[in-house]
């Protein structure tokens, strides 16, 4: 069912064009900024005290995801094996 074309035949879709990609990056940064700016217009009660400062959730999202990726990357050094690892013997 699958039909594979050689690399030359692959036409670049609209999502792969550099201009679109640049636009998407700008959109991503703008949305992130917007979510932080929106916090100016709401009143938020901290749950535990320390989580009350401005942009807490943005920071939490950023730091926790960065840490998760780094920890997974580090763990991968020890845990990743070739796909035929269990079939070798």
């Amino acid at each position: 069912m699958s039909h594979k074309k050689s690399n030359k035949d692959i036409q670049k879709g609209w999502l792969e064009k550099p201009r679109t990609l640049r636009m998407l990056w700008i959109l991503l940064y703008a949305t992130c900024a917007l979510t932080v700016i929106l916090e100016l217009f709401i009143s938020r009660k901290p749950h535990f005290g320390f989580d009350g400062f401005f942009g807490f959730y943005a920071l939490l999202g950023f730091i926790s995801c960065a840490l998760l990726i780094l920890i997974a990357k580090f763990g991968g050094i020890f845990l990743k094996r070739k796909e035929n690892y269990y079939q070798e013997d």
């Binding site: 992130c32 979510t35 920071l59 939490l60 999202g61 990726i69 020890f78 990743k80």
Partner: peptide, 26 residues
């Protein structure tokens, strides 16, 4: 929205680290 959008930001900023490899994990 803050939590999710900044997660998305991290994903695309760290994309080189997330490159897939033909491996399994123990």
């Amino acid at each position: 929205l803050q939590l999710l959008m900044f997660s998305a930001l991290v994903f695309f900023l760290f994309l080189p680290l997330l490159k897939r490899t033909e491996t399994i994990s123990l």
